[in-house]
């Protein structure tokens, strides 16, 4: 079963003084996330990640399309018992202490009175805030607030957890701690949907990623595949498009721009291909081994320009 199924979900905002024109913040989006998956929602700032999450949480209403979470319509209040959400750069009621805040959210999520207190103190221990006592949140550091944020998202033991930029604005140590927390949730089988523009976090945690740019889905990939598909390859760029015919057995995904060709080749076949190119009098411009990173995938999906002319 797909835990999250997004079908043609879109959002337009009216702009201009008379609110006549529509600016699409999210073009119709289709996505599916499976049970137990950690799904990364990648995109530069302003790509539409937060819009998508706000639509899914019912904070704004879609211009078209719908979504199903855990097999039910996403506006069904019942499913909201079973999901958790951490907004981007969350701010909490700063006049409350951490236990009071969690108690409030637990009540709103319908956690029964019995055992609630126990659960709250366990939760605080789990996110490393076991010793904060009754200090008001206004005295919390950013990293502590982010941990409170995660705690409130999971206080009611949800099956699906949505996190919007959970690592943004944190120092390296804080990021590491949050990453560990997400990993621990993943280990107990929770489905996690998180948006980020920090690729290394996604690479470290995600099973699959979707890349969104300018409100449009640009691609979905399995992180391990992306990694292995690039591993052991080298990018070769040369001048002399006529030489492409003689190396067509080796050159993968060739891009021709004018007389310049960019292609990848398996590293063990590199020498053979370079020899052929020399025979054809092609002028070699660059030879770069590929490291196979999510970054390349990301950049290739978010660049709007044609391959760079060298």
């Amino acid at each position: 079963m797909h835990v999250i199924e997004i079908q043609g979900l879109s959002k337009d905002y009216p702009v201009g003084f008379w609110k006549k024109q529509l600016r699409p913040a999210l073009k119709p989006l289709d996505l599916a996330v499976e049970q137990g998956e950690t799904f990364g929602f990648l995109g530069p700032n302003g790509a539409g990640k937060t819009t998508t999450l706000k639509l899914l949480m019912g904070i704004i209403f879609p211009s078209s399309g719908s979504a199903r979470i855990l097999g039910k319509d996403f506006h069904d209040p019942e499913i909201k018992r079973r999901i958790g959400f951490l907004p981007e750069q969350p701010y909490f009621y700063d006049y409350l202490s951490a236990p009071e805040l969690l108690d409030y959210y637990a009540q709103l999520s319908g956690v029964p009175q019995t055992g609630r207190k126990q659960r709250i103190s366990e939760m605080l221990d789990r996110v490393g805030l076991g010793d904060v006592g009754n200090k008001q949140l206004r005295k919390f550091s950013k990293g502590m607030l982010q941990r409170v944020g995660i705690a409130q998202a999971i206080i009611h033991d949800p099956e699906v957890i949505f996190l919007d930029e959970p690592m943004s604005g944190l120092d390296p140590l804080g990021r590491h701690e949050i990453r560990e927390l997400i990993q621990s949730l993943k280990d107990v089988g929770k489905t996690i949907f998180f948006s980020t523009h920090i690729l290394s976090d996604a690479e470290a945690l995600c099973d699959r990623v979707a890349v969104i740019h300018k409100g449009e889905l640009r691609g979905v990939g399995v992180v391990n595949d992306l990694r292995s598909s690039a591993a052991g390859k080298t990018e070769v760029i040369w001048e002399g498009a006529s030489a492409l015919g003689s190396v067509s057995n080796y050159a993968l995904e060739p891009h021709v721009t004018g007389d310049t060709v960019r292609a990848t080749v398996s590293t063990e076949l590199l020498d053979t291909m370079l020899e052929r190119l020399r025979q054809q009098h092609a002028r070699l411009i660059s030879v770069t081994p590929l490291h196979g990173t999510l970054e390349q995938y990301f950049l290739s999906r978010t660049s709007d320009q044609e391959p760079v002319r060298v």
Binding site: K54, M57, G58, I59, P77, E78, K80, R81, I83, G84, F85, L86, P87, E88, Q89, P90, Y91, F92, Y93, Y105, L108, S109, G110, Q152, A153, H156, F162
Partner: peptide, 12 residues
Amino acid sequence: KKTLYTILSRPV
């Protein structure tokens, strides 16, 4: 302050 987000994402 976006505190409403954490409320509307609950069965409220």
